[in-house]
């Protein structure tokens, strides 16, 4: 039952569907794709260019210069409120940790990107839908502070359902904490590039993710403050086609470019190269 629900949820969220182990199916055009090919193509459907969700570790491989990444994230979550809904939060955490293979919904560290010394922080949707609690907020804050100290650029890949309910007000406060940290970076003229991927909503959009010097969004990504379901319930109307998608955000002036994932690294590197005060030539 639980398994079935998990499977259904994954599909609805646009993950690659498991047919036999070696093959995946594009959720948009139904094309059968050899998994190795999909991975080589950065989880973009070779037939229709639909951007499937990409594992956090693959994001790092894609963005950091080869061999340059040195992980610094290491915090573990706790249960400050003793939160229990249909099950205790610590039990949920154990399950998320097992599923995602990491302590919380973020991984990051030092690297170079196109030769520019950077801090790269990547949120992980596989862990509780990339929700932001104390660990995510603190790791992002530390990453930004570290970048300011070491004269590095900051690149954050956002993917998140928003602030984590099980840490309640403390999750909310991470929005303020991460936002305040950005000023340390800006005082030193260090660039910050935010990459919005599918989906980025709630407290993550409404804090550090929206406050970068340059904001890129992946094609088709759902990006917004309130989730579409909440909006539909509130206004009791159908939502317009393409609402809250990356292209909608571009049209309304909220992001700088919608960038195909296969061009993303080059585009990020170019911006960092233009803005970083001390670009290291490779």
């Amino acid at each position: 039952m639980a398994l079935e629900r998990l499977f259904r949820r994954r599909r609805a969220q646009g993950e690659a569907r498991d047919i036999p182990e070696l093959w995946a199916k594009c959720p948009k055009c139904d094309a059968q794709i050899y998994k190795k090919d999909l991975e080589h193509n950065l989880y973009v459907c070779p037939k229709c260019s639909h951007h499937l969700r990409m594992p956090a570790s693959k994001r790092i491989e894609m963005l950091a210069d080869p061999g340059s990444f040195e992980e610094t994230t290491r915090l573990r979550p706790t249960d400050p409120l003793g939160f229990v809904d249909t099950e205790p939060y610590p039990k949920r955490l154990e399950r998320y940790q097992r599923e995602a293979g990491r302590p919380d919904a973020i991984v990051g560290g030092r690297c170079t990107i196109g030769g520019v010394p950077s801090i790269l922080l990547v949120m992980d949707y596989a862990f509780a839908g990339g929700s932001m609690g104390s660990v995510v907020g603190e790791e992002i804050t530390r990453g930004i502070e570290q970048a300011a100290q070491e004269e590095r650029a900051v690149v954050i890949v956002a993917v998140s359902g928003g602030a984590r309910m099980q840490e309640a007000a403390l999750s909310l406060m991470q929005m303020a904490k991460t936002t305040l940290a950005l000023d340390r970076l800006w005082a030193r003229r260090l660039p910050y590039v935010s990459i919005l991927t599918d989906p980025t909503t709630g407290g993550v959009t409404a804090s550090f993710a929206a406050l970068a010097d340059v904001i890129f969004a992946e094609p088709g990504a759902l990006i917004g403050f309130a989730g579409p379901r909440v909006i539909k319930q509130t206004i009791r109307q159908e939502l317009p086609e393409g609402f809250q998608r990356a292209e909608f955000l571009l049209k309304h002036g909220m992001v700088d470019q919608v960038v195909d994932r296969r061009r993303l690294k080059a585009q990020v590197a170019q911006v960092l190269g233009l803005l970083h005060p001390a670009r290291v030539r490779l």
């Binding site: 303020a176 959009t205 406050l211 317009p240």
Partner: peptide, 26 residues
């Protein structure tokens, strides 16, 4: 809460909340 509606999203609800947090911090 901030209004969850089409017009609010079109006009950048998340962006202004982030900006307001930042402005107040400064």
């Amino acid at each position: 809460g901030a209004y969850p509606g089409i017009s609010a999203e079109e006009r950048g609800q998340a962006w202004v909340i982030a900006q307001s947090i930042q402005r107040m911090a400064r």
